[in-house]
């Protein structure tokens, strides 16, 4: 079979594509058909079944904020995924409560997805409600005013534009809130 590909270009092309498409289709088209949680938004109202909450689409202000997050490339340095590791659930927990693990059904409305690959800064999957709005405003202007040693860039063109700033903060304060993980709703505003 492969010997023939030495002399026959069409044959070589045919085998290359067949071999490629076996793995290609099995790993891209098939998985969402098998694992339906990839396409069904998270919803649970029964505390007996675990954490409660509901993932809903973003409102217009949050959408605008998300577009800024994409535009400025925040996602190059911040991931949005609590992995199945204690290193994540403990570190990104808050006031003694572990952060819930991120599941595919929390991201059904995410487009483009913002999972990220690199943590030059901390993960933001559960950042919503951890810091108040004033903290974010100061932080975007110059991160080092609040966090000594931080290497996050300053974003004066956002900090000085009230419309952009409030949109971005509205997006961030909503992150990870589809799962209602805080006891007694103790989120910062």
């Amino acid at each position: 079979m492969f010997k023939k590909a030495d002399n026959n270009a069409l044959w070589a092309i045919g085998i290359s594509l067949v071999l490629f498409f076996i793995g290609g289709i099995l790993t891209t088209v098939v998985p969402p058909l098998v694992d339906t949680s990839w396409g069904k938004p998270f919803e649970n109202h029964d505390p007996a079944k675990g954490i409660t909450g509901k993932v809903v689409p973003l409102n217009d202000l949050q959408k605008k904020g998300r577009a800024i997050y994409v535009r400025e490339g925040c996602w190059y340095c911040h991931t949005q995924q609590i992995r199945t590791l204690l290193a994540d659930t403990k570190r990104y927990g808050w006031r003694g409560v572990d952060a819930p693990i991120s599941t595919p059904d929390e991201f059904v409305y995410d487009d483009p997805h913002m999972f990220g690959t690199k943590r030059t800064g901390p993960d933001l999957a559960r950042i919503g409600g951890k810091y108040d709005t004033q903290w974010h405003k100061t932080h975007f202007k110059n991160p080092r005013d609040l966090v000594k040693g931080s290497i996050m860039p300053p974003f004066p063109w956002i900090a000085n534009d009230p419309a952009e700033l409030s949109a971005l903060i509205a997006y961030m304060q909503n992150l990870g809130r589809g799962k209602d993980w805080r006891p007694a709703n103790d989120y910062e505003k």
Partner: peptide, 25 residues
Amino acid sequence: FWSLAFVYVWTGAHHMIHGPISQWL
């Protein structure tokens, strides 16, 4: 060449190990 043609395309999900994607994948 032929092992590359078959094997490489399967590995994309290893960028999400421990992440929010099916364990079997």
